[in-house]
Simulated scan of single mutants.
Amino acid sequence: MRKKEIEEMLEELGIPFRYHHFTQKEMENIELPIIVWNCGKSSNFFADGIVYQKIQKLDIELYTDQKDWDLEERLEHILDAHGIAWEQTASEWIQTESMWEALYEMEV
């Protein structure tokens, strides 16, 4: 899954999103909820000394001002509709930022 495909998928949720981070200036003008997504390392499938399938790890971080069960369910439905196997690995209050984070991890 390429950047364009990921962003088209995230647009379906209808909230602001950025790759890696929002700038401090952007955060002054944007209200929660927001999404930050990041592609970290790969987890490719190898055989016979070559890469048979490229597999990219994708993290989607949903930030809200309060726990938003409905928005999380909408995001999960979008991931399901795109055939993405996901796992929510965190759902916690970030005291220093005064916001909730729901972290979804997957491979694409």
Rank of each mutant, 00 (worst) to 15 (best):
I15P: 02
I15N: 00
I15Q: 02
I15L: 01
P16Q: 02
P16V: 00
F17G: 03
R18Y: 04
H20G: 11
H20N: 14
H21T: 11
H21R: 11
F22Q: 03
F22T: 02
F22V: 05
F22I: 00
T23M: 00
Q24H: 06
Q24V: 05
K25H: 02
E28A: 04
E28L: 03
E28C: 01
N29T: 03
N29I: 09
N29Q: 10
E31T: 02
E31L: 05
L32G: 01
P33A: 06
P33M: 03
I34C: 00
I34G: 01
I34L: 05
I35Y: 00
V36W: 00
V36T: 01
W37V: 05
N38F: 15
N38I: 12
C39R: 12
C39I: 11
G40V: 00
G40Y: 03
K41V: 11
S42R: 15
S43K: 12
N44D: 07
N44Y: 10
N44F: 06
N44H: 06
F45K: 15
A47K: 07
A47F: 10
A47Q: 10
A47I: 08
D48I: 10
D48A: 09
G49S: 01
I50T: 13
V51G: 08
V51D: 07
Y52M: 13
Y52G: 15
Q53I: 11
Q53R: 15
Q53V: 10
Q56I: 10
Q56P: 07
K57I: 10
K57Q: 13
K57V: 08
L58H: 03
L58F: 06
D59N: 08
D59H: 03
I60Q: 00
I60W: 00
L62F: 02
L62A: 01
Y63F: 08
Y63K: 00
T64C: 00
D65S: 08
Q66K: 14
Q66T: 09
K67R: 11
D68W: 02
W69L: 15
W69R: 13
D70I: 09
E72C: 08
E72H: 06
E73R: 04
R74K: 12
L75D: 01
L75Y: 07
E76P: 06
L79F: 06
D80Q: 14
D80M: 13
A81H: 12
A81R: 13
A81S: 10
H82D: 07
H82S: 07
G83N: 13
G83M: 07
I84F: 14
I84R: 13
I84M: 10
W86Y: 13
E87W: 09
E87S: 08
Q88T: 02
Q88C: 09
T89H: 12
T89F: 09
T89W: 03
A90G: 13
S91M: 04
S91I: 06
E92N: 09
W93I: 04
W93H: 03
I94N: 07
I94A: 12
I94R: 11
Q95Y: 12
T96L: 14
T96C: 15
S98H: 14
M99N: 09
E101S: 02
E101T: 07
E101A: 07
A102H: 07
Y104V: 00
E105S: 12
M106N: 06
E107N: 10
E107G: 11
